[in-house]
Design a binder for these strands. Sequence first.
DNA 1: CGCCGAGTTGACCATGTTCAAGGTGGGTGG
DNA 2: CCACCCACCTTGAACATGGTCAACTCGGCG
Lengths: 234, 234
Amino acid sequence: MAAPAAILSPSSFGPLRSMAPGVVWSALRPEEPEADAFRAPGTVQHFLPDRQIFADGDPADHFYRVVTGVVRACKFLSDGRRQIEAFYVTGDVFGLEAGLNYNISAEAVSDSTVIAFRRKAVEALAQKDIALSTQLTTAVMRALGHARSHALLLGRRGAVEKVASFLNEWATHSASAGVIHLAMTRQDIADYLGLTIETVSRTLTQLERDRLIALLNTRQIRLCNRAALEDLAA
Amino acid sequence: MAAPAAILSPSSFGPLRSMAPGVVWSALRPEEPEADAFRAPGTVQHFLPDRQIFADGDPADHFYRVVTGVVRACKFLSDGRRQIEAFYVTGDVFGLEAGLNYNISAEAVSDSTVIAFRRKAVEALAQKDIALSTQLTTAVMRALGHARSHALLLGRRGAVEKVASFLNEWATHSASAGVIHLAMTRQDIADYLGLTIETVSRTLTQLERDRLIALLNTRQIRLCNRAALEDLAA
DNA sequence: CGCCGAGTTGACCATGTTCAAGGTGGGTGG
DNA sequence: CCACCCACCTTGAACATGGTCAACTCGGCG
C-alpha cells in the first residue's frame, strides 16, 4: 500500500519510533483510519497518567504504538529502585519482545492514547512479508543503538552531563521556539538519568544560574545556549 | 542445512549468542567447516588482545561471530572515558547494525578468532529467507533485553551489587567446579560496570573477606557462596 | 483561602573517585 | 635457574560528587 520505504525514520527518543510496518501502517495514521482497518487489527486504548500498560513478566501478546501522550519503559529492583530505559512519544512503537514475556514494564507518563496490535497476527504477517520482517529487525536494532548511548550516559557521565544530554534529547521532540515542554516529573527524569530528584533539581538550577537555560515553570524550559548544552553533552 | 529451530539459544553474556542464521550456520561450526562454505561467505580472522575489530563510525559492512576468545563492545567519550556494553564469547554474534555505520567499537579482549560475514550477502539471503530474517529480529531483541538489564545495573546498583552481578553473569560462561576464569582485566570489568579499577579491586577484596569468593589469582575466582552472591545481585 | 503534591534548597553524610605508594606474578634474559 | 622487570593489581588516605534527610516554597485546584 502506501508508505513503503520511508517508514523507518532516523531520530528517536523512544527508540522504536516510526517503525510502522506495512499492513499495520494505515491503522496508525489518524487521517485515514478505516481504510485498511481489517488488515491492521489494532485496538485503540487510553491510559491515564501512571497507569500501567504492561508489566515486566506479563505474557507479551501485544505490542503498541503511541498515538498521543508519552509512555515510559522501566525496570524495578526488588526494593523499589527504578530505572527508566526510554520515553516513547507519538509514533514510537514499544512492547516488542524476543521471548514469551515482556522483560520491561510500560506505563503512561501523561494521558496517552495507544494502539495495541496482536503480536501473533503481526508475526504471521511478517512470515509472509519480508519487508515487514526487515523493518522489525531494523527498528529493534535502532532501539539497541539508543540503549547503548543510554548505557554510556548512565555509566560514565556526571550529573551535569546527564541533565544536559536529557535536555538535548527531549528538545528534538517537544521544542518550539527554543522552549521545551516536559511531559514527565522530576522523578521520571531522575530515574531516566540514574540520579535523584534533588540532584536533577539542583543541576537545573545551576544551569539556569549559568544562563544555559531558563526555568519558565516546572514543565517549561527555555534553552538559551544550545551550543553550550551540546558541549556539555559531548 | 542442519540446525533449523534450536538456533536461538536462551542465555547470553554478549547478547547475540547463538544467532547463527540458516545458511551461515555451517561455516560457524568448527567440526564441519567446509560443508556449506560457499553458501556461507564468512572469512576467518584472528585478533591479538586489544586489537580493534571495528570502530564506532566505521562503515558497517560486516558482522561477526566469535569462534574462540572474548570480544568487548565499547563506546568512548571524547576525553577517553570508556563504557563496555557487552562481552562476547564463543558463539556470540556482534556487529549487526541498523544504519550504514557501526555505532559502537569492538575489540579483542583475549586472543580471538572470529568469522566475518558480508552484511550485504546476509541481507540478500534474509530477503529470501523468512526464517533467517525472523532469527535476526529475535536475536537483536534479545540483545536489547541484555542492554536493558545492563542499564538498570549501571543506573541503580551500588558497587557491591554490580560486582556480584558481574560474577554471576560471567559464571554462566566460564565456571567449572565453582571457579570462574576471567578473560578480562580489572579495567575491563570496571568499564563494564561503570566503576573504577580501584573500586572493583576493593569490592572483590571485600567479598573475599566476607567469604563469598576466593581470589585464587587475579584471573581465577572461586565462588564460595553462590546463593549469597545471587542475593546481592537481586 | 488553604491544602497538597511537586519542586527547591540547605546541611550533612556516604559511596565511590582520585592520587599515591606498594605489592605480585608471569615472562624474559642473563 | 634465578633475578629482574613491567604491567597489573591492591591498598591507603584525602577528596568530591552525588545521596539523604529535612525544611521550606511554589503553584494548581477545590
